[in-house]
């Protein structure tokens, strides 16, 4: 039995996409000193409203926009509580996550009852192929043997996610806004002392994260699964935080970490499909996570040693 087929590698990218989007939100957030643990909740809320938006407007594009706007609004609200009202941001994030779980099911029941006269517990019955974010078959690339099968044919949002990695690098390292974000994250007093508005930068930081997490949520309900269902994000928002930290907080490293998590989940799915006891399969993603964290730590230590050696 061969697990490592082109299908398998294709599925890694497919599975890693929402994690990657949320990871970029975490990367920008941490650079700006905003630890947003509410990404999971934002993804849930955006997933719900993305699918509802697509259903109402009949357009996947408008659904996507609605998901982004919902993510943005939720993130800015978090900012209001955390920065303006001085609530601990971890508490705010926890609240958002609880709303993302319990609040979404409440909303979907209430809204469907009001609008359609029947109480739905998911939006899967509403979403059809027409509401789905389109897949793109890339000309020429798709004809490359092996590689073509792996990287062509993904959702539009997958390609956007990888382009956003480049966008994140440029934003953080090549623009005045990025410099402000990094300086506010590292030493807000220094930024404030030269007239940078710390709170404005923090709102921008968390807002960008909200939009990115919103995209991740939309991907879940409008591509990965057809429609929203309870707790469908299933910890991807938290995995993103782990990926950020595993990637050393840098865009490219964190992207690779997101792919590692994608690999772990894909492997779990693949192995369970071969008929292995599901109790044995369930720990695979976690085992991969532990192994990669150990490898990461070892690598860090080796680098540190090298640096000392170079300095001496």
């Amino acid at each position: 039995m061969n697990i490592f087929t082109t299908d398998f590698f294709f599925s890694i990218i497919r599975i890693a996409t929402p994690i990657l989007l949320a990871t970029l939100a975490a990367v920008i957030g941490e650079k700006g000193g905003v630890s947003n643990i509410g990404l999971e909740g934002i993804m849930m809320m955006s997933a719900l409203f993305g699918s509802l938006g697509a259903y109402w407007t009949g357009s996947w594009l408008l659904g996507l926009v609605i998901a982004m706007v919902v993510g943005l609004i939720e993130a800015l609200l978090m900012g209001f509580f955390a920065f303006k009202l001085q609530t601990d941001i971890i508490l705010v994030g926890t609240a958002v996550n609880m709303i993302g779980s319990g609040g979404t099911i409440f909303l979907v029941k209430t809204i469907s009852n009001t609008v359609m006269g029947q109480s739905l517990t998911s939006t899967t019955s509403l979403i059809t192929k027409a509401h789905q974010i389109p897949s793109i078959s890339i000309p020429y690339v798709r004809d490359i043997p092996v590689v073509g099968k792996v990287i062509s044919g993904h959702s539009l949002l997958t390609y956007i996610a990888f382009l956003l990695v480049i966008f994140t690098i440029i934003l953080l390292y090549k623009t005045p806004l990025g410099l402000n974000i990094r300086s506010v994250g590292e030493n807000p007093n220094a930024a404030a002392s030269v007239g940078v508005s710390v709170s404005r930068i923090r709102y921008i930081t968390i807002g960008i994260g909200g939009v990115l997490a919103g995209l991740g949520g939309a991907y879940m309900s409008m591509y990965y699964a057809m429609g929203w269902s309870l707790d469908m994000v299933a910890g991807r928002g938290f995995i993103a935080l782990a990926a950020q930290s595993m990637g050393g907080g840098e865009p490219v490293g964190s992207m690779l970490a997101a792919l590692v998590f994608g690999f772990a989940q894909a492997l779990g799915i693949k192995v369970s499909a071969t008929g292995v006891d599901s109790n044995l399969v369930a720990p695979i993603p976690y085992i991969v996570t532990i192994i990669s964290l150990v490898l990461f730590a070892l690598n860090q230590r080796r680098k540190e040693r090298k640096r000392f050696a170079a300095a001496a």
Binding site: L179, N180, R182, S183, A190
Partner: peptide
């Protein structure tokens, strides 16, 4: 009031970055 991970030049222009 300096940001340690930034370069001297970046610290110099913080808040008034030339573009």
């Amino acid at each position: 009031m300096l940001v340690p991970s930034l370069t001297v030049a970046e610290n110099m222009v913080l808040g008034m970055v030339p573009t």
